[in-house]
Simulated scan of single mutants.
Amino acid sequence: MGLKDCQIIFDNPYNTYYVGQTVNGKVEVTLDSPKKIRGILIKFKGQAGVQWVIEESKTNNEGKTENERIELVGDEEYFRIQYYCLGGKDNDAIELPPGKHIYPFTCVLPPTLPSSFEGQYGHVRYTVKVILDRPWKFDHETKVAFTVLSPYDLNMNPSLKEPVKITLEKYFCCCWCKSGPLTCVIAIPKSGYVPGEMLPILAEVDNISNVDVLNVSFQFQKVVSYHSQFPRRETKKDVHILERVQVGPVAARDSKTWNQNMALPPLPPSNLMNCSIIDLDYELLIEVNVSGFHTNLTSKIPITIGTVPVIAAPTAPPISGDNVAVNMDPQHNNTPQLGWVGPQKGRLYPSIPSESEFGTQSIYDKDDNQYTRFNSNAQRYSPMYPVYDFSSTQTQQN
C-alpha cells in the first residue's frame, strides 16, 4: 500500500489566524512500506469565488421561445505560495522508509486579505495542500482549509458608538373616519457590535388607533450580495435571518414598553474588505404587525459587526493555541473575553458550528480541476469566528 496516512496539523488548534500572522504547522506522513517520491510540495492559496445559474427566455431562429440557462461566475485570487519542504520537481527519486515522517511548514499571510466566508452562492477560502510528488505515477494529495480574519475595530468609526432611534407612525382609515395614530419608537444604544454581545432593543408602542397590534417583530439579518464577472456583471442578494424575537400584543387605545435583548451569534465581520465580488452587511428589521387588512409598519437599522468591541480597550490579541480566551483589560470586571462560544451561555468552547460543513473525503475541486482527497477527521471548509463572552467571571492575568 505504501502511504497509510497524510495529515496537515496547524500550530493553532482552531486553524484560525489574523491577517499578517505567520501560519506554522507540520505534515505527518505515515508509511507502512518504503515509498519513492520526487518531493513533498506545499501549496498555500487564498481565493474567492461566486457562482449561480439563471434562466432567460430567448426567441430562436424559428420564432419559438426557449429557456436558456446561463451560469454567472466571478473569481479573485489573493495570494498563492508554494515550495518543496522535501526534494524538488527536478530531483531524483527519494525513497522514504516505513514509519512516521514529519516536515514543518510556514507561511506569512499578506496584511490585506479579506476574512474567510462561506455562503450559498460564494465563498472566500484559504487552503493548504500537501502533494506527494511521485515520478511517473499519480500524486497523493491532502488538502485542508484554515480561517483568516481581518480585524475590524469598531472604535475607528465614531458613528458606530452613537445611539440610533427610529419612529414609525401610521393612521388608519375606516370608511370616512380617521383613527388616532399608531406610533412605535425603537431605540438601540449603538450600531456597532461584536459576536457574543447582546443587542439591547427598547420598544415603545403608543396605540391611539382603533386597530390592534398583533406583535412587534425584530429580525437580525445577514445580507450577502454576490457580484458576477462573467459572462456579464450581475448581482444576486441572499438574506438570512440569524436571530428573531418579538413582543406584544398591544390592544387598540393602549400603550406598552419593552426592553428586549438579542444575542448575536458567531459571525464574520461586516463588509468583507478587499473582496470585490462579495459584500456582507447586517441589519435589524423591525415590523409592526397589525390586525385586519392593514399594511404593517416596517423599517431597518444597519448594524456593523466587528472584531474589536466599542470599548476603551486595546486591539484584540492574536489567536494562538495558548491564548484563546483572554481578558482585554484585567482592571475592569465587565471587560469581555475573546474566545469561542458554544451552545451554553457563559461557557467557552473549543469549536463552534460552521456556516458550511462538508463531510466527504473526496470532492471535485474546481480550482485545481481534479478530485482532491481530504483529511478524514477534518471538515473541508469550516470557518471559525472569534466571539466575546461578556458573562465570563473575571480572571487574574499573569
Rank of each mutant, 00 (worst) to 15 (best):
M1T: 04
M1Y: 02
D5R: 03
I9N: 05
Y17R: 05
Y18M: 04
K26D: 00
I42E: 04
K58G: 01
T59F: 05
K64R: 09
K64V: 12
R69I: 05
Y78V: 15
D92C: 03
C107L: 05
L109C: 03
L113N: 11
E118Y: 02
L132H: 06
H140W: 13
K143F: 00
K143I: 07
V164I: 04
K165M: 09
I166K: 06
I166L: 07
L168M: 15
K170Y: 15
L182V: 03
C184G: 08
I188F: 12
V205I: 12
V205Y: 11
D212A: 07
N215S: 13
V224P: 00
S225F: 02
R232M: 11
I241L: 09
I241G: 12
L242Q: 03
E243I: 08
V245Y: 09
A251I: 08
A252N: 09
T257E: 14
Q260V: 06
M262A: 01
P269Q: 08
N271G: 10
I277D: 04
K300Q: 14
T304V: 06
A313N: 10
T315V: 07
P317H: 05
P330L: 15
Q331H: 03
Q337L: 14
L338H: 03
G346A: 01
Y364N: 02
D368E: 14
R373K: 15
N377R: 07
Q379P: 01
Y381D: 10
V387T: 06
V387R: 10
Q396S: 09
